[in-house]
């Protein structure tokens, strides 16, 4: 639900960044989105169009790198990949997984001119 406000905030930040870094157009934006970031990739894509309209990123390509959710089982100690936060350890089927990756929501880089 907050994907549109995230995208609008990102564009505002990038408009400000453009002056400092000396670019006028953004051709591509790369985001890293973790599976546990609480953000829907499809909703981000959907919001990207309206959010960039009339901005220096209008027409830009949005590339989303999805980061898997990973962690360590509290019981068996295995390093595992999980699909959701509440899932028990896929290795032993029991333990609680301490999450170490997959909550990212990062603006990685831009292709600009």
């Amino acid at each position: 639900m907050h994907e549109l406000s995230l995208m609008e905030g990102m564009i505002e930040d990038l408009e400000a960044e453009a002056g400092k870094r000396g670019f006028a157009r953004i051709h591509r934006i790369r985001l890293e989105v973790g599976r546990l970031s609480g953000v829907e990739v499809e909703a981000l894509r959907f919001a990207f169009g309206p959010a960039t309209e009339g901005s220096l990123a209008e027409g830009a390509e949005l590339e989303i790198l999805e980061i898997p959710a990973t962690g360590t089982c509290q019981d068996c100690g295995a390093a595992v990949e999980i699909a959701a936060r509440f899932e028990p350890c896929p290795a032993c089927g029991e333990g609680f997984v301490i999450i170490s990756g997959g909550t990212e929501l990062r603006l990685k880089d831009l292709d600009v001119e």
Binding site: K20, R21, R106, K108, D109
Partner: peptide, 23 residues
């Protein structure tokens, strides 16, 4: 903000590595 100020022609990549929630 130490790099990227020079106006170069053509495309270039700007690394940000910044959380979308940073602000």
């Amino acid at each position: 903000h130490t790099h990227g100020h020079e106006a170069r022609p053509g495309r270039r990549r700007v690394s940000l590595e910044q959380s979308l929630l940073a602000r």
